[in-house]
C-alpha cells in the first residue's frame, strides 16, 4: 500500500471512530455537537501520557478513552437537563471550553500545541477501529441498545414501558465520550501533533454531519457517512491534481461536500442508510437467491 493510501485509510478509520462517538448519543436521540471536546481530551491525555510520562501507546489510548468517558459521565447529568437547540448549543459550548482550557495549559504545549514522538500507524489503528465497531454493534444488540433506539423514536412511550430514560441517555453519552477520547488518542499519534486548532469550529459540525448524513438508525450509518465524506473529498482532490482544468476542485471540493449535504437532506432526510433500505436490499438478495436455487 502506498504512503498516500495508508494515510487516507488511517484518517478514514479515525474519522469512523469519532463518528461512532457521536452516533451513540444520536442513536438514543441526543444531538452532540461537541465531538471536538472529547477528541481533545483524549488526544491531550494520551499524548501527554506517551510524551511526558513515557507510557506505551496502547495503555495510553485506553486511559484516554476512560478519562474522556468519565468526563462525559460527569457532564451528562447537567447536559441532559437541556433539550433540542439548547443541547446542541451546550455540547458545542462544552467543546469550546475544553479547547480554551487546553490552550491555557503550558505543560501540554499551550498555544504551540503538543508534539509526540510515538507513532500510531495502521497496525494500531485497524484493530482499535475493529474493536470500536464491534463494541457499538454489541451495545446495539443488547437490551440497553434496544432501549436506546426506542428512546430515539419515542421517549414518552419508552418511559411507560419501563425504560430508565436517564440511565439509557447517560450510558449512550458516556460511551460516546469514551469513543471520542479513543479517536482523539489515535489522532494525536497518527499526526504526532495536536493543538486546539486541530479541531476547529467546523470539526464537531463535520462529525455530526457524518452521522446524520449516514443515518442514525443502524450501526452502518456513521460507517457510510465517514466513508462518503473522507473518500469523496480525496477523490475530488486527486482529480484536481490530475487535470489542470479541474484545478478549481482543490478548494472547491468542500463546496461539493456542502451541496451534497443539502441535497442528501432533501432526497434522504433520514440519512443514507435506513432500516427500510436494508430491508429492501435483503429482500432483493433473498429473491435473487431463490431464483438461483430454482434455476
Amino acid at each position: 500500500m502506498s504512503g498516500y493510501m495508508s494515510g487516507v485509510l488511517a484518517v478514514l478509520l479515525i474519522n469512523m471512530v469519532i463518528a461512532y462517538s457521536v452516533f451513540l448519543p444520536a442513536a438514543a436521540g441526543l444531538l452532540n455537537l461537541g465531538a471536538a471536546g472529547f477528541v481533545l481530551i483524549g488526544g491531550y491525555t494520551a499524548g501527554g501520557l506517551t510524551s511526558r510520562a513515557g507510557w506505551p501507546l496502547v495503555p495510553a489510548i485506553l486511559v484516554a478513552g476512560l478519562f474522556a468517558g468519565v468526563v462525559a459521565f460527569v457532564l451528562a447529568f447537567p447536559i441532559l437537563r437541556t433539550r433540542g437547540v439548547y443541547m446542541v448549543l451546550a455540547t458545542f459550548a462544552f467543546a469550546e471550553v475544553v479547547g480554551g482550557i487546553y490552550l491555557n495549559i503550558p505543560s501540554l504545549g499551550g498555544a504551540t500545541g503538543l508534539s509526540v514522538s510515538t507513532y500510531a500507524g495502521l497496525p494500531v489503528i485497524i484493530p482499535t477501529t475493529v474493536c470500536v465497531v464491534a463494541f457499538v454493534a454489541w451495545l446495539l444488540s443488547t437490551r440497553l441498545g434496544l432501549a436506546m433506539r426506542a428512546a430515539h423514536d419515542d421517549e414518552n412511550v419508552s418511559l411507560l414501558f419501563g425504560v430508565n430514560l436517564r440511565m439509557v441517555q447517560v450510558a449512550a453519552f458516556t460511551a460516546g465520550g469514551a469513543l471520542g477520547g479513543i479517536g482523539g488518542a489515535l489522532l494525536v499519534h497518527q499526526f504526532n501533533f495536536i493543538d486546539v486548532q486541530t479541531t476547529g469550529v467546523l470539526f464537531s459540525i463535520y462529525v455530526l454531519l457524518y452521522v446524520l448524513i449516514g443515518g442514525t438508525q443502524t450501526a452502518w450509518g456513521p460507517f457510510a457517512g465517514a466513508l462518503f465524506f473522507t473518500v469523496v473529498p480525496e477523490i475530488l482532490r486527486t482529480m484536481s491534481k490530475l487535470d489542470p482544468s479541474m484545478k478549481f476542485l482543490e478548494a472547491g471540493r468542500f463546496i461539493v461536500f456542502g451541496i451534497a449535504v443539502v441535497l442528501i437532506m432533501v432526497v434522504r432526510p433520514e440519512g443514507l442508510i435506513t432500516r427500510t433500505l436494508i430491508e429492501k436490499v435483503q429482500g432483493s438478495l433473498r429473491r435473487l437467491a431463490a431464483r438461483e436455487t430454482a434455476a
Binding site: R149, D153, F161, Q217, R275
Partner: peptide
C-alpha cells in the same frame, strides 16, 4: 424505525437485564 420483533421486545424490557443480548 424498529422491527416488529424489536417493538414487541420493548414490552418485556422491564423484566430483562440491560446487558443481555436482545
Amino acid at each position: 424505525h424498529l422491527s416488529t420483533i424489536e417493538n414487541v421486545m420493548l414490552g418485556e424490557h422491564w423484566r430483562r437485564p440491560a446487558f443481555s443480548l436482545a
